[in-house]
Design a protein around this nucleic acid. Structure first.
Length: 200
DNA sequence: CGTTCGATGCACT
DNA sequence: GTGCATCGAACGT
């Protein structure tokens, strides 16, 4: 198994988002290991991205998006759901950027994932940003974790390469559209994969 | 199948 | 005080 290290994340945000498709997100916990293949992501990047938490400048919450690539940005949404991002940006630039992980295909620790998802059907274990964090046991404690460290409990392992013809792109989900930047096609997913989120 | 709507914590104004 | 990068229960087809 080959881990994805700093160099992978220290590149253009859209390149990282594209290449994250097909890679494995792995979390080792006292309960065991659980892992899923990335099948859906969203990029949030740059000063002009009005949908990005970094858009309004550096705040206590968004500071991580201005920091080193490979660090996890985990935050609570709607008071209920934890969302996981990974900081992705070339070195030597100063804008905020991260990739939101929106859906995984379960590949390891299936028993553990089923337990964490309380017996729901397998297809619903990790087909949404708030669901995959439950399935992998990711929460507040993983915010600021270094996913690119060579011994990190939360990390990435090299998976399959998704061919260009299987990569679909469209507007990001759950954001209002008035600002032009919000309709950018920065949601990427694997074509026809049943574990992609439904989107509302 | 589909749609609606309440839950819920916290960063930010 | 306001507004979310959502989910799942509950209801109507």
């Amino acid at each position: 198994m080959t881990r994805l290290l700093r160099d992978f994340f220290a590149r253009d945000t859209l390149i990282v988002a594209r290449e994250l498709l097909g890679q494995a997100l792995v979390h080792d916990t006292p309960d065991g290991r659980a892992a899923g293949r990335v099948v859906e992501v969203e990029a949030y990047t740059g000063w002009n991205d009005a949908a990005s938490h970094g858009h309004r400048g550096l705040t206590p919450r968004s500071a991580v998006m201005f920091g080193p690539a490979g660090i996890a940005y985990v935050y609570l949404c709607y008071g209920v759901h934890w969302m996981m991002n990974v900081v992705a940006r070339p070195e030597g630039v100063d804008y905020p950027a991260a990739v939101l992980i929106r859906a995984l295909e379960p590949i390891e620790g299936l028993h553990l994932m089923e337990k964490r998802r309380m017996g729901r059907p397998r297809r619903d274990w990790s087909n949404g940003p708030g669901r995959l964090t439950l399935a992998l046991g990711i929460g507040k404690a993983q915010n600021l974790a270094d996913t690119a460290g060579s011994h990190s409990a939360l990390h990435w392992e090299q998976g399959e390469t998704i061919p260009d013809e299987s990569v679909m792109r469209g507007p990001r989900i759950g954001i209002d559209v008035p600002e032009p930047s919000k309709s950018l096609p920065w949601r990427l997913w694997v074509k026809d994969n049943p574990h992609v989120s439904r989107g509302r």
